[in-house]
């Protein structure tokens, strides 16, 4: 029992990331009908927003402290981040400590702008082209974005720490009445899951309870009729693209402490999140979220030693295996509508 709970918990953080990226992909696909291979790159840009904020906060000036010497005997050069002198050492230190959560504030506008530019500048011209063309051009864009990030941040993963409070792990099992030291769970992963749940809830609430969301949902169902009613649906869809980019970016920001950002993390997640979208059903938002969590948890179950000893290597392929079975037996996915993209 405790092993099962542990695996479910382990699957949650990856599942959250899958769910968030797949949610954005489905938003774009459902509204604009575009297959966006650059969505993984948006996730990566989000993660690098966190890196950027951390670096900016650590900008320092140098002073010479004559009372101390370095190992060569010269006066010691002390680096003080500017935030220290602006907010005082204590507040400054905690600002730097909380750089990843602070990066959310930075990432939202950046990602929305990136999404707007992408949609208006490139993807707009591909609505009427076949899906293969959309895949190809966004694949090219993903390469470009990836190389730009590699150019500016280098090829090595960059450590981006969570706030001190959330570092380390806690004994989750004791809270549930199990023996101590059975279910140890890192704080930040729980934070990530809660964050993902909030974002997913917010997106659904936005679509469900606002007029804007209603129009967008109507447009997803029948774009032409909504257009005939005198609503500029293209504009709304552009905003949705920005929103989807922001969701992917936020998923990336908060993922930075779990996995040090590197330039190819977007590509790594992209393939899996496409699989997630297909499993959930093209164009179905709840399906994307459900499939994201399901596949994340399934993956962590498959990596249990007990299962690996029966079926070696299953942890590496389980997601693809599930995707193949789903595609062959139920091509509209878990929750896809009948007749949508079902050829």
């Amino acid at each position: 029992m405790d092993a099962i709970i542990l695996q479910i918990l382990n699957g949650l953080d990856k599942g959250s990331a899958y769910a968030l990226i797949a949610l954005g992909l489905t938003l774009i696909f459902g509204t604009l009908g575009v297959v966006n291979f650059a969505h993984g790159a948006l996730f990566m840009i989000g993660a690098f927003c966190a890196v950027t904020v951390q670096r900016v906060l650590n900008f320092s000036y140098e002073t010479i402290d004559p009372s101390q010497t370095d190992f060569l005997g010269n006066p010691l050069v002390v680096k003080t981040p500017y935030v220290f002198s602006w907010f005082g050492p204590e507040t400054g230190a905690s600002i730097i400590d909380w750089s990843v959560p602070l990066a959310i504030l930075f990432a939202i506008p950046v990602m929305i702008v990136v999404g707007f530019v992408m949609e208006r500048g490139l993807i707009k011209h591909f609505y009427k082209r076949p899906h293969a063309d959309q895949i190809l051009v966004t694949f090219g864009l993903a390469i470009v974005l990836q190389e730009l990030i590699k150019y500016f941040y280098g090829a090595n993963p960059i450590q981006t720490g969570a706030p001190d409070v959330f570092r380390g792990s806690f004994d989750f099992g004791v809270m549930l009445g199990f023996d101590p030291n059975v279910i140890i769970y890192p704080y930040w992963r729980l934070v990530y899951f809660a964050f993902a749940a909030v974002i997913i809830g917010a997106v659904f609430a936005f679509l469900q309870f606002t007029t804007f969301g209603m129009v967008v949902r109507a447009g997803m169902a029948d774009r032409e009729t909504v257009g005939l009613l005198g609503i500029n649906i293209d504009k709304k869809f552009t905003i949705m693209f920005g929103l989807a980019a922001a969701v992917a970016g936020l998923a990336g920001v908060m993922y930075a402490p779990i996995n040090s950002p590197n330039y190819h993390m977007g590509m790594d997640f992209l393939v899996l999140s496409f699989v997630v979208v297909v499993v959930g059903g093209m164009g179905s938002l709840p399906g994307a979220v459900l499939a994201g969590f399901l596949l994340g948890i399934l993956e962590s179950f498959a990596s249990m030693n007990e299962i690996k000893s029966i079926l070696p290597g299953i942890d590496q392929i389980i997601i693809y295996l599930v995707a193949i079975i789903i595609l062959l037996t139920r091509p509209r996915g878990l929750m896809g509508r009948k007749g949508v993209m079902e050829d």
């Binding site: 392929i317 693809y320 995707a323």
Partner: peptide
């Protein structure tokens, strides 16, 4: 399957082969 489903199926098979070859 055809269209994007075909692309994703082939992608999934190739990634499976890659992961298996690695492990």
């Amino acid at each position: 399957r055809s269209g994007i489903y075909f692309s994703i199926l082939t992608l999934a098979f190739a990634q499976m082969s890659f992961n298996l070859a690695y492990s």
